[in-house]
Design a binder for these strands. Structure first.
Length: 137
DNA sequence: TTGTTGACCTCTT
DNA sequence: CAAGAGGCCAACA
């Protein structure tokens, strides 16, 4: 009873083929590229979740990988607004991984996105879903 | 080389 | 309703 059903509703057409800039200098990872690209597409004052990005890539189960990608996003060019990426609950789960624990809140504050108790205010309102905003049609 | 961990999410009991 | 386990891909030991 691990997977009684596996709905393959993917049909995603990611024609994006950006350069491969990996934290380790590798150029084989495509998942990371997509993650970086999507996060960079996040408009100012908006926030998204790991699962949303993962789902946009086609596999919402790889939400963990999205977080890993962010880990190297700090030294990637152009800089990836990782501060705009939070978990499903709207909590700044990765704020501790930034240069400074308060850096994430600072950046979000500049985006007019206020945070309270490690949680984004009106998260659902600031929420930015790539699959929806980008409109897959 | 294999095994474990990891900025998560979803399903099952 | 709450808690536990499973699962994805990649990096580190």
């Amino acid at each position: 009873m691990a997977n009684p059903v596996k709905p393959n509703k993917s049909a995603k057409a990611i024609s994006e083929k950006p350069k491969a800039i990996l934290p380790s200098g590798r150029k084989d990872a495509s998942f990371f590229e997509q993650v970086y690209d999507v996060v960079r597409l996040v408009p100012r004052g908006r926030v998204t979740s790991y699962g949303a990005i993962a789902a946009y890539l086609g596999t919402k189960m790889s939400a963990r990988m999205v977080g890993w990608a962010m880990n190297g996003a700090h030294h990637v060019s152009p800089k990836v607004p990782a501060h705009r990426v939070v978990n499903r609950n709207g909590m700044l789960s990765g704020k501790a991984h930034f240069a400074t624990p308060s850096l994430m809140e600072e950046l979000l504050a500049k985006e007019k996105v206020f945070v309270k108790d490690n949680m984004i205010q009106d998260f659902k309102t600031k929420y930015w879903d790539p699959s929806v905003e980008l409109s897959l049609d």
